[in-house]
Design a protein around this nucleic acid. Structure first.
Lengths: 183, 183
DNA sequence: CAAATAATAGACCGGTCGGTCTATTTGATA
DNA sequence: TATCAAATAGACCGACCGGTCTATTATTTG
């Protein structure tokens, strides 16, 4: 098992993704991670807010990892997009369709804090930049790559929401044909 | 002023859209609407949950109205999309960039309730269907129309999220060039 | 081994949560 | 005007919230 500190952030992350920052109480997080309250405030002196930022950071990095894994093994840009969407759909299913974008529920639902919004904005930019890098690697111009990265990202955010509402991950799997021009 | 019942739902809606179902307390809703607690439970016997459903329904209808207003006065499908996005961006600005999709924060952030998810799913379908109807009206085939409606809807949901994170409504205004093929 | 530090453990606190309940006021109807 | 339901008003409740604090146990380090 990961360190207590990491374990807390991961478990808190799952819960935040399901029911939002204010929808989850500390007691539930603590119980889910099997950790007493003293440990939480030892590792995260600012409590819930710290924990949410850490959880978002971990989730954001995990998504970057998935992006790389998807595009590194791809033959074309569209292949990468397809693999990426399938991996995310699988992730969605594993969590019983109760989970949305790994960071938006945590950070947008949180306190009206500027730090939260800026962190979220930075994470989104990181994702889009990475997607664009891969697009460039497959021969797209910088402008094309940015265009396609943003298009994919925005649609994906929407798909996550629609998938949760419908309880159906296929919405995510259908994305490639929606965002990529017909071959 | 609208009836107490409607006023409550509207004000509650704005607050839910900003901070999610669990992020807003009854006391704040009551204060915002200038209504005592007794009235709330008179008009909405099931309390907060009822109120959220009513708020979502009102917001959903308002969006349909905006869709119609945008496409009815348009010369082409793309014109309609552009007007639609501009209207929504303006709505976003009016509320100081603190507001997201008028229904997702309210219903997805709410109780883990099946009714909430089904209501949300139905609202989304209504929006996409209406968008597709207008697309057909501009000469698109049923398949094209569905494709474009879903593409617009998903990107728009994403744009709302990104706009909130960045505090910038231009993300929404840039949508038409992102989701419509180059003219 | 001794001392210091890190980490765990959980009792406890004031405040706020959503919800209930009784009382009063308002407005329609006879 | 008398009656009755609709609506308003807000005191009150137990539960839970995030957070603080002290005590104890592990772990490192001299």
């Amino acid at each position: 098992m990961a360190s207590t500190r990491t374990e807390l952030a991961i478990k808190a992350g799952y819960l935040f993704q399901q029911r939002g920052y204010h929808g989850v109480g500390l007691s539930e997080i603590l119980e889910s991670a099997g950790v007493p309250k003293g440990s939480l405030y030892h590792h995260y002196p600012n409590g819930k807010a710290d924990l949410a930022l850490a959880a978002a950071e971990i989730a954001a990095t995990e998504v970057l990892r998935i992006i790389d894994a998807s595009f590194d093994e791809a033959a074309t840009y569209r292949d990468g997009v397809t693999t990426y969407c399938y991996k995310l759909a699988k992730y969605f299913d594993i969590h019983e369709g109760k989970i949305g974008c790994p960071v938006s529920a945590t950070l947008l639902g949180g306190p009206d804090n500027a730090v939260f919004r800026e962190t979220l904005s930075a994470i989104y930019s990181r994702w889009m930049d990475r997607l664009a890098e891969h697009a460039v690697r497959f021969g797209q111009s910088a402008a094309q790559a940015d265009h396609n990265a943003r298009r994919l990202f925005l649609s994906l955010e929407g798909s996550w929401t629609l998938a949760r509402a419908r309880g159906d991950s296929n919405v995510i799997r259908e994305l490639p044909s929606l965002v990529c021009e017909a071959t």
